[in-house]
Each structure stands twice: as C-alpha cells, then as structure tokens.
Design a protein around this nucleic acid. Structure first.
Length: 234
DNA sequence: GGCCAGGTCAAAG
DNA sequence: CTTTGACATGGC
C-alpha cells in the first residue's frame, strides 16, 4: 500500500491494482459489443446484461447489420432481462444504424466524436464515455454510479458528472490504458466492497484512507449519489 | 415486498 | 439550470 494520510487518485489506482490485479476490460469481443453492452447495462446489473448479450449473439444480432435488419420484437425478446426493454430495443437498433459511421470517425478530435455519440438516442455522458474509452481507446473516464459513490467516500469529493470526470482526468495520466484499468478497478472495488446493499468494509484494500467511517454508516445518509454543482462553462 | 442495479430523456419548477 | 417522472426486469 502507498504511504501518506491523504490518498490521491494515483495512489488509489496503485493500491487497487496491487489488491485486485489487472482487470483486462471491457468484457466484450469487439467494439460494437462494447457499445451494445454499455447501452444495455444502464440502470441494470451486468449479470442481466450477460443473458441478453448471449441471446443476441445466438440470434446473430450482435452485429450492426444483423441488428439493423432484425425486427424490434426479436430484439425485445433477447434483451428483456435488462429492463426498459422496449426503449432499449429501439435505441439498440438506432445504434446499429449509426455505429459504422461512428467507427469510421474514430480518429477525429475527442470532443467532436463525443458530441456525435451524444446525439444518439439513449447515449448520455456515461455511455458515450464508456464507448470512447473501451471501444475507441480514447483517454476519457466514464463516471458511473460506482465512481460517484467511491469518489465521495474516498476523497470526500461530491460533484456532478463533468466535475467528477475532470477531478480524475486532471490527476491521472491522459492515457487510455491507465484510465481503462483505473475505471475497471473502481467497478471491482464497488462490487466487492463498496456496494450499497452491503458495504463490506472489512476486507477493503483502501479501508484505512476511506472517509466512509462507521459513524457515517450508522447515521445513515439520504444522499450519496449525485449533487448540485455550479460554475460551469469555459 | 421494498430497494437496488455500471442511465437517459422530456417536461416542468 | 435543477428536479421529477417514466422506462421494466431480476436478485437479495
């Protein structure tokens, strides 16, 4: 473990890497599957997404053309376990129509490509950034519910999406490989120890530096996720 | 049963 | 610009 009383993002990265080892993410066979998984996992456990991905592959729907030509009802059938399945089926098919175009632009300026992804129905900041990092290997950090929670507990930093993203991106190497591994490690930490149901702080590798003390747990808080953050624009 | 799970969008305050 | 409701299934 790293020394110092105040854990920095780089130290957190190091400690988690030692504790968990390389995560080798994202669990997908190709870029399109990354995008599909990113959309399906919205507000849903990855476990349910795996079932849907298995079904889609089984029906030959894990390709842009396959998904484009499929009937909506067929897509819905495959992805039902992920919830919001009617909405997600439409968004998935639209993604299939647009993805080849996005892929061909993968070397454009980062923010330009990000803006293009954000135009897609059902692709918000987190999903766009997941696609950028894990499919296109661009140096950007997706901020998910796990990241919000861990950031508050470890660093005491509470902010909206862009604020949290910049908190890390200004403190870590602007390197896709590093951000990839870092985010994957955060997810692993959240799943193993920093969960909402059971905060298993017992075996947590960064317990010493965490602000989520016993006192705070007992008190019980009303808001752990988002928060208002002002002062934007550039 | 109620709450949570790797969000996003449109409408309203 | 911030808050709220809708979208929906599965596990603990």
């Amino acid at each position: 473990m790293s020394g110092g009383l105040c854990l920095k993002p780089v130290d957190l990265y190091h400690d988690l890497l030692i504790a968990f080892g390389p995560q080798d993410w994202w669990p997908a066979e190709d870029k399109f599957e990354v995008a599909v998984g990113a959309l399906l996992t919205q507000q849903t456990s990855w476990k349910n997404v795996e079932k849907a991905i298995g079904e889609l592959k089984h029906r030959g729907l894990m390709t842009p053309e396959g998904l484009s030509n499929a009937r909506l009802a067929a897509i819905e059938l495959c992805i039902r376990p992920t919830g919001y399945y009617r909405q997600k089926a439409k968004r998935l098919q639209n993604l299939a129509n647009e993805f080849p175009g996005m892929e061909s632009r993968r070397n454009e300026e980062l923010l330009g490509l990000r803006a293009a992804l954000l135009q897609l129905d059902g692709v918000g900041k987190e999903t766009a950034d997941s696609i950028l990092l894990y499919a296109f290997e661009r140096p950007i950090l997706p901020v998910d519910a796990y990241t919000f929670r861990i950031t508050e507990r470890i660093f005491g930093f509470v902010g909206a999406y862009e604020a949290v993203r910049e908190f890390y991106e200004t403190r870590l190497p602007k390197d896709a490989q590093v951000l990839n591994e870092f985010h994957a490690l955060l997810v692993e930490l959240a799943k193993r120890h920093c969960n909402k149901r059971k905060s298993d702080c017992g075996g947590c590798p960064v317990k010493k530096r965490c602000r989520f003390t016993k006192k705070e747990r007992d008190r019980g808080r009303k808001d752990v996720s988002q928060a208002t953050n002002r002062g934007k624009k550039g």
